[in-house]
Amino acid sequence: MSEYHELSWQGLWKNNAALVQLLGLCPLLAVTGSFVNGLGLGLATTLVLIGSNTVVSLVRNLVPREIRIPIFVMIIAAFVTIVQLLMNAFTYNLYLALGIFIPLIVTNCAIIGRAEAYASKNPVGFAAFDGLMMGVGFSLVLVTLGGMREILGNGTLFDGMEFLLGDWARSMTLTLFETDNKFLLAILPPGAFIGLGLLIALKNILDRRLETLGAPRPTDKQVQRARVTAES
């Protein structure tokens, strides 16, 4: 049980793919212009991670060590193709909005990193759970960044959720404020870099707080003075 606990903690916070490993930044920075884009890419990445981790773990004893990377890449590419076709079929507008970044999930280093570092050395259950947690951790960052940028740049939140959830979600759009002068910087690529930087900084601050909370407060030391000079 503690292994699952440890995997969750590592995936969601301590070893978060986006905030700590800084892997998969290209889609992270490129598509997080809105909440729904972040959520869509996050879900796709999570599905691919779970699938690839499971299969890599299943075949881990059959794959020759020398050619493991091409094999992993092919497994990942197969799952990316599945996800891409599914999105094309069921969430067509989101598929169009994410564009090239869905096939590019293949090149997301977070996925091959997990396959190589964890799934190829551990049993199926753990590997699948690790994929789930890594994916959820990555998605949370995508969603946070997307929401932040959407609020700042557009004044809305959950705009376009109908692309993912169907027509009823049209009413989910929250308009926080309306303005003629939109804060374009938040939507443009520099906004993604600044936003990600601020998120990483926030995580580091929280980590430091947690450390000082957990650590016992240093007690006042009783200094024992020793006489070092000869008596005069």
């Binding site: 804060f183 374009l184 910087l185």
Partner: peptide, 10 residues
């Protein structure tokens, strides 16, 4: 630059 790319009209 930030203001110019964010609010080009103003």
């Amino acid at each position: 630059v930030i203001l110019l790319v964010s609010f080009p009209v103003a």
